[in-house]
Computed example of a mutant assay.
Amino acid sequence: MIRRIYRSYAEGLSYKAIAESLTEEGIRYIPEKPAWNKNMVARILQNQNYLGVGKYPLIVEEELCQAAKMVQKPYTHTESKDIKAIKPLLVCSVCGKPVRRRVKKNGEERWYCEEGLKHIGMTITDEILMESIEVLWRHLIGNLQFADVGDNAGEDNPISLETIRLKNEIDQMLKAEKIKEDELKAKILELASLRYASFDTPWHNNRELMRRLRQAPQGFNIKLILEIAAEIKVSYCEAEALILKNGKVIAKGVNGNERSES
Score class of each variant (00 low, 15 high):
196 Y>P: 06
99 V>P: 02
217 P>A: 01
12 G>V: 09
42 A>G: 06
77 H>I: 12
62 E>W: 01
103 V>E: 11
251 A>R: 15
34 P>V: 11
75 Y>G: 15
138 R>A: 08
205 N>E: 15
90 L>Q: 03
3 R>C: 05
45 L>W: 08
70 M>S: 14
99 V>W: 00
112 Y>P: 09
245 K>Q: 08
31 P>R: 11
163 T>V: 15
20 E>N: 14
104 K>V: 08
175 K>S: 10
15 Y>W: 01
147 A>Y: 03
108 E>M: 00
6 Y>F: 13
8 S>I: 08
97 K>R: 14
114 E>W: 02
228 I>Y: 06
136 L>Y: 05
210 M>F: 07
45 L>S: 06
176 A>T: 01
104 K>T: 07
145 Q>T: 10
127 E>Q: 12
163 T>C: 14
201 T>M: 14
76 T>D: 15
86 I>P: 08
61 E>D: 13
118 K>E: 13
132 S>I: 02
235 S>W: 10
3 R>K: 11
207 R>V: 05
82 D>A: 12
156 D>T: 15
19 A>C: 05
97 K>T: 14
53 V>N: 12
23 T>G: 08
248 K>R: 15
189 L>I: 13
133 I>D: 06
229 A>L: 00
256 G>N: 12
5 I>K: 01
27 I>K: 04
64 L>C: 11
240 E>M: 11
99 V>A: 00
237 C>I: 02
216 A>E: 01
241 A>S: 15
46 Q>A: 11
199 F>T: 15
68 A>G: 03
79 E>Y: 09
215 Q>Y: 01
123 T>M: 06
50 Y>V: 04
39 N>V: 05
86 I>V: 06
68 A>N: 02
234 V>M: 01
225 I>A: 07
261 E>V: 09
215 Q>D: 11
253 G>P: 15
104 K>Y: 05
216 A>S: 07
177 E>A: 07
106 N>C: 02
76 T>K: 14
222 I>P: 12
222 I>E: 11
213 L>Q: 04
26 G>M: 01
22 L>F: 11
176 A>W: 00
199 F>D: 11
